[in-house]
């Protein structure tokens, strides 16, 4: 590393590596383009960032920022893969695990789940906190899709996809704070009473096991799924088969 590299107007430093970026790119966009993994959940490169899960938090010039919303700047010094930041990310994941009901052994999404795979990447060995065990009934009213709200992490990807890509506004996040919940935009509140379909982008963006296509859950056996094969740090957004 030379002084010339550090002062290059189109690069920044991420964990002592030089990362090129173009004007308007966020830290995570530039990092991922350079093949560097920053753990994240509510960020999906196909959508406008939401900045809510905070798992992608980095230290940019010494200040904490969500790398999915923070624009890259020349000469910025970014820390990501440090023990302190990873400990904080793991605590965020543990809070997500205990706030919902995440029973991986009986979940169709296991092995293709970004929450689970991110927890593997951050070596989460236990949920640490006390479980909330909330009561969140399923919605099986749609002929092709099941909604299991127990697993929702409020990333809003289905909300963004349905609103911005499908033009349908099938989903929304309701209430605030700890009471925030995913709701379905129908008078009955049931997915079966919306025009949601398998062709919708929203049907295919859930990073966890909330939006589940019926009758194909175990087509690919557990043990052979995307994140069973490769860690999420190697392949953050693989084409997922069978779930």
């Amino acid at each position: 590393m030379t002084q010339d590299n550090i002062s290059n107007p189109t690069t920044f430093m991420l964990d002592n590596k030089i990362i090129p970026f173009s004007e308007g790119q966020t830290i995570i966009q530039a990092a991922m383009a350079a093949g560097e993994y920053i753990p994240h959940l509510c960020y999906n490169p196909e959508f406008k960032p939401h900045g809510s899960c905070k798992v992608c938090t980095v230290k940019a010039n010494g200040r904490q920022a969500a790398s999915c919303t923070q624009l890259a700047q020349a000469d910025m010094v970014v820390e990501s893969n440090t023990q302190q930041i990873n400990d904080e990310r793991r605590a965020l994941l543990q809070m997500l695990f205990v706030e919902g009901n995440h029973f991986c052994p009986s979940c169709e999404k296991s092995g293709n789940c970004e929450l689970q795979a991110t927890a593997y990447a951050l070596e989460m060995m236990s949920p640490h906190f006390d479980h909330f065990s909330p009561n969140r009934p399923l919605d099986a009213s749609h002929p092709e899709y099941l909604l299991d709200f127990n697993r929702c992490i409020l990333c809003s990807l289905c909300v963004r996809a349905s609103r911005d890509v499908d033009g349908k506004n099938v989903f929304a996040l309701s209430e605030r704070g700890i009471k925030t919940q995913l709701i379905v935009n129908a008078k009955s509140g049931k997915l079966g009473d919306t025009d949601f379909s398998d062709q919708d982008k929203a049907a295919h963006v859930c990073p966890v096991g909330v939006i589940i296509k019926k009758r194909v859950g175990f087509t690919i056996p557990i043990g052979e799924r995307a994140f069973d094969v490769n860690p999420i740090s190697v392949s953050p957004h693989p084409v997922k088969k069978g779930a």
Binding site: F97, N101, H102, F103, C104, P105, S106, S126, P127, H131, S133, P134, N135, R136
Partner: peptide, 18 residues
């Protein structure tokens, strides 16, 4: 040492919790 899903998050028996 807690061994397995049930020891760690209650597992299948904990699905009665709600």
């Amino acid at each position: 040492i807690a061994v397995g899903a049930c020891a760690i998050n209650g597992g299948l028996p904990a699905q009665r919790n709600h």
